[in-house]
Computed example of a mutant assay.
Amino acid sequence: MKTKILLAEDDPDFGMILKQYLELEDFEVSWFQNPEDIVQILPSGLPFHIGILDIMMPNIDGFSLAKMILKEKNDFPLLFLTAKNQKIDRLTGLKIGADDYIAKPCDPEELTLRIKNILKRTLPTAVETYIKIGEYSLDTSKLLLSHSEGNIRLTVREQELLVYLLKHNHTTITRDNILDSLWETNDYFTGRSLDVFISRLRKYFSHDQEVKIQSLRGIGFEVDFPTY
């Protein structure tokens, strides 16, 4: 399950660079050079997890576009891009409801980090509400993992870990990355806590042998969730 990004950037060169880099980082990017095209799809909903908006665009500037988006979906995460590193722009964006702000030209790695930090703060709204996982279904709005054998009410931490693993499905994840991303610290006690939560998730998914969370000694975990 890839994170879907709405990118509004009228500069063809910069937009293409951002799109290609973010896709290399395993994001799914829908790039719009004309903000009016985004306005056209607003009534039908926004199938994205986060929006990246350039402030200086023709016809409709980024601030105006943000107001339209937030009117339709007031909890939609937004990050502003601007060529002007001025205080007034930063304040205007934050007052509108932006989650972050970065000046162009920006370092793609820094942009990626900011996106991931926003998504981490906005969970579970940054993921789909209903996720099918093999024989199970996850309702993130209710912290509910369901199976024909019964329902399991997850803790917030259990769901955060499960969503993190889903975002890195079919990959190897290091223990350090999980601890730094979810616990924001990495020591013996948090490491043991991670092991406990991993054991719980394995137990929860015991009715579906296709769901695999495999430990890799000295590295981390390899996860394989059948999703549809």
Rank of each mutant, 00 (worst) to 15 (best):
S30A: 15
I55F: 00
N34V: 15
K95H: 13
G45E: 14
N59A: 13
P43T: 09
R90L: 15
E28W: 10
D89I: 08
K84G: 07
I55E: 02
E28Q: 15
M56L: 11
D54L: 14
I38T: 02
S44L: 14
F80H: 02
N59L: 13
W31G: 05
L91V: 15
Y21M: 01
M57I: 02
G97D: 03
P47D: 15
I69A: 05
M56A: 09
G97T: 07
F76A: 06
L42G: 00
E25D: 13
I96F: 05
N74I: 07
I17D: 02
K84H: 10
D89E: 08
S30N: 15
T82P: 02
G93D: 00
L22F: 08
I55K: 01
F76Q: 05
T92Y: 05
E25A: 07
K84S: 11
K95F: 15
P47E: 15
P58S: 04
P77H: 04
Q33V: 13
R90F: 11
L53H: 04
N34P: 13
I52C: 14
A66Q: 07
A103C: 14
L24D: 03
M68K: 04
I60D: 01
N85L: 06
I102P: 12
E72C: 08
I41L: 14
E25H: 02
M57C: 01
E28G: 12
E72A: 09
G62H: 08
F27Q: 05
V29N: 06
I17K: 04
D75G: 00
I102E: 03
F32A: 02
E36N: 14
G45D: 14
F63Q: 02
G97F: 01
L42T: 03
S64C: 06
Q40E: 12
D54Y: 12
D37V: 11
T92D: 06
E72W: 05
A83T: 12
G97H: 02
D99R: 04
I55G: 00
L53A: 01
D99C: 04
Y101H: 11
F48L: 06
D61W: 07
L53E: 00
Y101M: 11
P58E: 08
F76T: 06
D99I: 03
F32Y: 15
L42D: 03
D100K: 01
E72S: 11
A103V: 14
D99G: 02
Q33N: 13
D99P: 08
L70Y: 06
D100M: 01
K95T: 15
T82L: 04
P47K: 13
I17Q: 06
M56N: 12
I60R: 03
T82I: 10
G97I: 11
G97C: 08
Y101W: 14
F48S: 04
N85S: 10
L79D: 01
D75S: 03
D100W: 01
S64V: 10
D37G: 10
I69P: 08
Q33E: 14
F48I: 09
K73Q: 12
